[in-house]
């Protein structure tokens, strides 16, 4: 039996870009194979008819959980201390362009 590929290497490359995970050429192939096999299993769901069935996004049935508009003070330097690279009080990010 010829097993159809569910995911191509081009797709893998695109998914890796969307996920911002750098992968090598060799990994592209590996992911394409592994993912194809896993997705083949996921396609099991094709066998079940869900016409007219709404999705379950939340299992809890509560709605309108909200908080009052009250500002809470925050310790000023608590979070800067764990920033890996800073410039003064700014978080330093790599160049944009």
């Amino acid at each position: 039996m010829v097993r159809e590929k569910q995911v191509t290497r081009e797709q893998v490359r695109h998914l890796a870009w969307l996920s911002r995970i750098r992968i090598s050429k060799a990994e592209e192939r590996k992911y394409a194979e592994e993912m194809s096999e896993i997705l083949r299993y996921f396609r099991k769901l094709d066998d079940i008819d869900t016409t007219g069935i709404p999705p379950t996004y939340h299992v809890v049935e509560v709605v309108n959980v909200m908080r009052d508009d009250e500002p809470q003070p925050n310790p000023p330097n608590q979070l800067l201390g764990i920033v890996p690279a800073r410039k003064g009080r700014f978080v330093k990010a790599p160049r944009i362009v």
Partner: peptide, 24 residues
Amino acid sequence: GLRYGFRLEDDGYDWSTAFSRNRR
């Protein structure tokens, strides 16, 4: 890698490449 956690040296890289390297 920006706000906390693991960050590689990324001098010279653009943000997208830097993120991809950190996450790799």
